[in-house]
Simulated scan of single mutants.
Amino acid sequence: MRTLILDERDDRVIVTLNRPAARNAINAAMIDDLHAVCDLLERVPRPLLLTGAGGAFAAGADIAELRARDRDKALQGINSRLFDRIARLPMPTVAAVDGYAIGGGAELAYACDVRLATPATVFGNPEPGLGILAAAGACWRLAELVGRSVAKQVLLAGRQLPAEAALACGLVADIVAPEELLGAAHRLLDRMTAWSPAALRLTKLVLDAPGVHPLADDLAQAVLFETEDKHDRMTKFLERRRRDSDA
């Protein structure tokens, strides 16, 4: 990995964006590296923890590279295809965001399932100031996360969302001190990994499925109802409740 620090564990994968001199701006090499991470997690599904080195998450995309891109490059959706792939990873993804998540960095965070922040966290999408739009998911994903009114304030009026505002509108799940950020993210993943992997995977699939409810819910539940894992977990629950009632 040229631009990432990869920590692969049995029950999770931790990825640190590692271009601190550029505040982890997303360039072509980082895009390639993140695609390699997606290859890994599609082959062996595990939760992903995504964070940034050096007190920043990702302060945008590499502007020099963006300036050189033409219409044909735009139509390839270089960033948007990657972020959509991250959003569609089979297991939950958590973004631990310290410092700036701006432009493409914000869109990368939006693509994750859950975001945690520190008091220094700031989200923003100033792309129109550079003559472009936030075309890697923010124009529709941000509205899904925080509502159309707040999304328009960010995308059309240049509003930035510091940590408290991001928490108030539901963009982040919690605000923790910088030194506690990774610990909080790992505790969140600990809760996830204690649950049924199949149930987590199908819950995410159904939750993100567009316009197919309740059929998708029924089909996913039908699959889970036949698993040994479901039977074992419910048996343990009933046994625990029986012991509690007898005590």
Rank of each mutant, 00 (worst) to 15 (best):
Leu6Pro: 00
Ile14Glu: 15
Ala21Met: 07
Ala22Met: 06
Ile26Ala: 02
Met30Gln: 04
Val37Arg: 14
Val37Trp: 04
Cys38Asp: 05
Glu42His: 00
Thr51His: 10
Ala53Leu: 01
Ala53Gly: 05
Gly55Thr: 07
Ala58Asp: 12
Gly60Val: 04
Gly60Tyr: 05
Asp62Glu: 13
Leu66Val: 13
Arg67Asp: 04
Asp70Met: 00
Asp72Met: 02
Ala74Met: 06
Asn79Ile: 00
Ser80Gln: 10
Arg88Pro: 00
Leu89Met: 11
Pro92Gln: 03
Val97Cys: 09
Ala101Leu: 04
Gly104Phe: 07
Gly105Ala: 08
Gly105Trp: 11
Ala106Lys: 01
Glu107Ser: 07
Asp113Thr: 08
Arg115Asp: 09
Leu116Lys: 08
Thr118Glu: 14
Pro119Arg: 06
Val122Lys: 11
Leu133Ile: 14
Gly137His: 07
Ala138Cys: 00
Cys139Trp: 08
Trp140His: 15
Glu144Pro: 04
Leu145Tyr: 02
Gly147Gln: 12
Ser149Asp: 15
Gln153Phe: 01
Arg159Asp: 12
Ala165Lys: 13
Ala166Phe: 01
Val172Pro: 06
Ala173Ile: 01
Asp174Leu: 01
Ile175Phe: 03
Ala177Glu: 15
Glu180Cys: 02
Leu181Lys: 14
Gly183Glu: 15
Gly183Ser: 06
Ala184Tyr: 07
His186Ser: 06
Thr193Ile: 15
Ala194Thr: 11
Ser196Leu: 05
Ser196Glu: 12
Leu200Asp: 12
Arg201Lys: 13
Thr203Arg: 12
Thr203Val: 02
Val206Cys: 03
Asp208Asn: 13
Ala209Ser: 11
Pro210Phe: 02
Asp218Val: 12
Asp218Ile: 10
Asp218Gln: 14
Leu219Thr: 08
Gln221Pro: 01
Ala222Ser: 11
Leu224Asp: 10
Thr227Glu: 13
Thr227Arg: 12
Thr227Pro: 07
His231Asp: 05
Met234Val: 08
Leu238His: 14
Leu238Glu: 15
Arg240Asn: 15
Ala247Gln: 09
Ala247Cys: 01
